[in-house]
Nucleic acid binder design. Sequence first.
DNA 1: CAGCGGACGTTACAACATATCATTGATGGA
DNA 2: TCCATCAATGATATGTTGTAACGTCCGCTG
Lengths: 169, 169
Amino acid sequence: MGMARNAHDHVHEMHRGASLEHAARESLEKAGEQWTEMRAAVFTALAGFSRPASAYDIAEAVGAARGRRVAANSIYRILDLFVASNLALRVESANAYVANTHPGCRHDCIFLVCDSCGQVTHIDDEHLSNGVRAAAEKARFAPVRPVIEVRGRCANCVAKGEQSPPPQA
Amino acid sequence: MGMARNAHDHVHEMHRGASLEHAARESLEKAGEQWTEMRAAVFTALAGFSRPASAYDIAEAVGAARGRRVAANSIYRILDLFVASNLALRVESANAYVANTHPGCRHDCIFLVCDSCGQVTHIDDEHLSNGVRAAAEKARFAPVRPVIEVRGRCANCVAKGEQSPPPQA
DNA sequence: CAGCGGACGTTACAACATATCATTGATGGA
DNA sequence: TCCATCAATGATATGTTGTAACGTCCGCTG
């Protein structure tokens, strides 16, 4: 487990591995929901991907882990719960999901989605997200959920000169 | 045809109806592409929706207009061209498209998507979109296309107390 | 006319998402 | 104990969104 102090002077727990799952469980139970075997398996699978995973990716991973096929249906139910409970985040422009590394802390977030390798990095910038909310309000719009994502190429891929088609897994 | 001067001191042509189609045609031809009957029909259908339209919505509309079924395939090809040429914009969080009312002017844009009535309003704020680009660059990411959308409820729906399920067409 | 390239048609399929109803298992009350 | 109930999950089907592969048509040009 690690700590990090970011640009807007705001402490986040950046969890990984077992610590992340523990934090997720705590967070879900604090919301009055159960941490079931299935939910744990979905979370583990999700956290195991280094890139955003589709519901079907997760279904496959969970199915492999328990030696039994799992229907998309069940995965979507759990992902919806995770998103509602802030354990996972949906990347709209990729129709896919990522585990939230600090599930206890809810805020708008910004995704940088690499079109070469598919990796997503997640940054927070309250100044920007508040700016977006403010702009919406100025247009007499009641913002509920800002979606701020940037498609482009990560430092790694720019350095390597990689082209667009993302490799597997 | 009308003119508008917006917050960042920047003139846009805000086209509607025949003027919009004319501007779209000009814009496409200036890009070295042909303005075919099919493309005209797709643009007309797209511009005829008051809300973001899916490729299948458009396929249906175009099919009805010419009395002959049109495959999704063809629509996607044309929509991709339109997006690349800035005649249309894709609303990522809705998997749908809107006509660009000022096709000659290319910039990042911000969508406000009403979860009650489904309407989308499109605002521009260079300060914000530049901020998003800058944040990405600061993370050593080469931004190509910012996706800035806000889900929420438009002034109208807030006033009417409408709930989420969007009405048809 | 032959050859070429762009636009569109046709068919099939892959990927993403939801609807509906059945089953299971835990809990609590009569 | 027995049963009612409810949350979670399973099973099945279907709806929606997006691509792939290949064929045809047509206008252009040598």
